[in-house]
Every structure is written in structure tokens, then in C-alpha cells.
Nucleic acid binder design. Structure first.
Length: 274
DNA sequence: ACGTTGACCTGTGTGC
DNA sequence: TGCACACAGGTCAACG
């Protein structure tokens, strides 16, 4: 499910509901999602900790717990973090439940079990998978056009592979990569070192515009994605290429094609993406 | 340095 | 209806 706009929407929907709450008890139903530390220590540590706030970095959610503790969650493909009232029936694939003060629960649900949970000391980001090697946040000022152009020139990869590599830019996944490339008018296979400055400017603008639009519509719910209240997003209604293979291009009418690029299903317009 | 592929999992949609 | 197969918002490791 979750790329930057989805994770950001989860963060925004969840934060007012859980901020200031105390974790009174933790249930772990599938310990495989907890990467660090062991399940026992994990449960022990959380006991009595306050959720002071939530941050997002790329596709990671960071829960600050006070006393220097950070709960890091990555939803991968099908993970959901949902706030639930006490007593609501546990649905299948619920792997983790945080029981909060006030009687509500924060539940981690994940059909495919790819999701990851880490408990790390604040600042020790290298202990949580790829968190420490993430590139700039594309919607923040730290993401500058000049640095972006330079990064493009330095590499020799297809532009879709470049966008998907979290070390280059944090938070773009398969759906938004295709939408961004359509908006920028670039073929996914296009080598980044062939991208001239004007095109790089278009791509830079498209990255920011498409991701911002995704957040505005609260994410893309094609399959499993829901926000922290269990509500679906609406950006699937705005998609121009993703999931539209065989349909006509909204810009020029040409039939959109699908092929594998960078190991992922990729849809583009063979006529207006060059 | 780069790409491709398979692995991790479960569910859904398709075609026979 | 049943079955087999491909494919799915993500990353990693192994290989060439």
C-alpha cells in the first residue's frame, strides 16, 4: 500500500488520536514482524511509555516514546495501522495491538507479513533497516533542484529505477513513480544521464506536484490501503497511468502500454512520454 | 556500478 | 466449481 502520501495520511490521521496516550499493554500475535529487539523485550519496553508524537521519514513512521525510545514502523506492501475502539472485533492478520490509556487500541494488520517494526534508541537510525540511508524528503526544502540535477548526472540508471531507489529520494513507490513520469513526460526506461536540465526541472516539479496531490486526496486505495481511522483514500480516481494499461492516454488518446521496468509492472504512454 | 531474479507472504483475478 | 498461474503500494540478498 503505502508510499509517501499514504504514510503521511496515516501519520496525520493517527497523531491526534494517539498523542499523549500511554501504552498500557502490548499483544504480539505474530512476532515475525518485530525485527528489533526480541518480542519479550519489545513488550517489556513499551509498557507504560507515552506516545509523544509521530513523524514520517520516507515510508517509515516514527513514534517517539520518551526516554529516548523510538518505535519505527514500515508498512511495506499491505500493512495497516488502525486506531480502534476497545472491544472491536480483531480482524484476521492482526499481528500487534497496543492497548492505550483511555481504552482504545492501535492495531497493526498486515496480510502479507512484510511489514517491519523496530524499537530503537532515538538517533540510532542505522538500527532500523534502510532508515539511515534515505535520500531527501521530496516535499521539504532539503530537496533542491540543483542537487537533484547533479544526482541525475552522476548515475547511469533508468529514471524509474532512480525514483524507486530510496537512497536517491525518500518515499516514492511504484504507483507514484509511474504517475510522476507521466506528468513529466519521460519514459520510465530513459537513462537519467540523458536527461537534460529542462527535463530535470519538469521531473522535479512533477515529483512534488504528484506527491502533494496524493496527500491532498488522502492516498491511493486500490487494494488494501486505509488510513489510521480505517478510511480509504481517493487518489485512485485521479490516476492517469497506473492500473490503466490498455486504456487510452488522458492527454493524447494513445493506448497505454504495460511492461516490466526496474523489476516492476510499469504503465506509460508510448506517445507522450519520451 | 548496474541489472535481474528470487525470496519473503497471502489474497485475488484470470483463463482453462 | 475447481485448479493453476500471474500478479500485487516494498525491500534485500545473491548473482552475473
Amino acid at each position: 500500500m503505502p508510499e509517501l502520501p499514504e504514510v503521511e495520511t496515516v501519520k496525520r490521521s493517527l497523531e491526534p488520536l494517539v498523542k499523549g496516550r500511554i501504552i498500557e499493554k502490548t499483544d504480539v500475535f505474530y512476532s515475525g514482524i518485530i525485527k528489533k529487539p526480541g518480542a519479550e523485550e519489545f513488550i517489556q519496553y513499551l509498557q507504560g511509555k507515552e506516545i509523544q508524537g509521530i513523524k514520517r521519514r520516507g515510508k517509515y513512521l516514527l513514534f517517539s516514546l520518551g526516554q529516548g525510545g523510538l518505535l519505527v514502523i514500515h508498512l511495506r506492501m499491505t500493512g495497516q495501522l488502525v486506531f480502534s475502539r476497545k472491544g472491536e472485533e480483531l480482524i484476521k492478520h492482526t499481528h500487534l495491538v497496543l492497548h492505550l490509556s483511555g481504552g482504545d487500541e492501535l492495531r497493526f494488520i498486515d496480510i502479507r507479513k512484510f511489514g517491519l517494526v523496530y524499537l530503537i534508541p532515538t538517533g540510532k537510525w542505522e538500527e532500523a533497516g534502510g532508515l539511515s540511508t534515505l535520500g531527501p524528503e521530496p516535499l521539504e526544502a532539503e530537496f533542491s533542484l540543483s542537487a537533484f540535477q547533479k544526482a541525475l548526472q552522476q548515475k547511469k540508471v533508468g529514471v524509474k529505477a532512480f525514483l524507486l531507489d530510496q537512497r536517491n529520494i525518500a518515499g516514492i513507490g511504484n504507483i507514484y513513480a509511474d504517475e510522476i513520469l507521466f506528468t513529466a513526460g519521460l519514459r520510465p526506461q530513459r537513462n537519467v544521464n540523458s536527461i537534460v536540465n529542462e527535463e530535470a526541472g519538469c521531473l522535479y516539479d512533477a515529483i512534488r506536484a504528484v506527491l502533494a496531490e496524493g496527500i491532498k486526496y488522502r492516498g491511493t486505495s486500490i487494494r488494501d490501503y486505509v488510513d489510521g481511522k480505517g478510511e480509504r483514500g481517493r487518489f485512485q480516481e485521479k490516476l492517469k497511468v497506473y492500473d490503466r494499461a490498455g486504456k487510452s492516454c488522458v492527454r493524447c488518446g494513445t493506448v497505454l502500454v504495460k511492461e516490466t521496468v526496474a523489476g516492476r509492472g510499469t504503465v506509460y504512454c508510448p506517445s507522450c512520454q519520451v
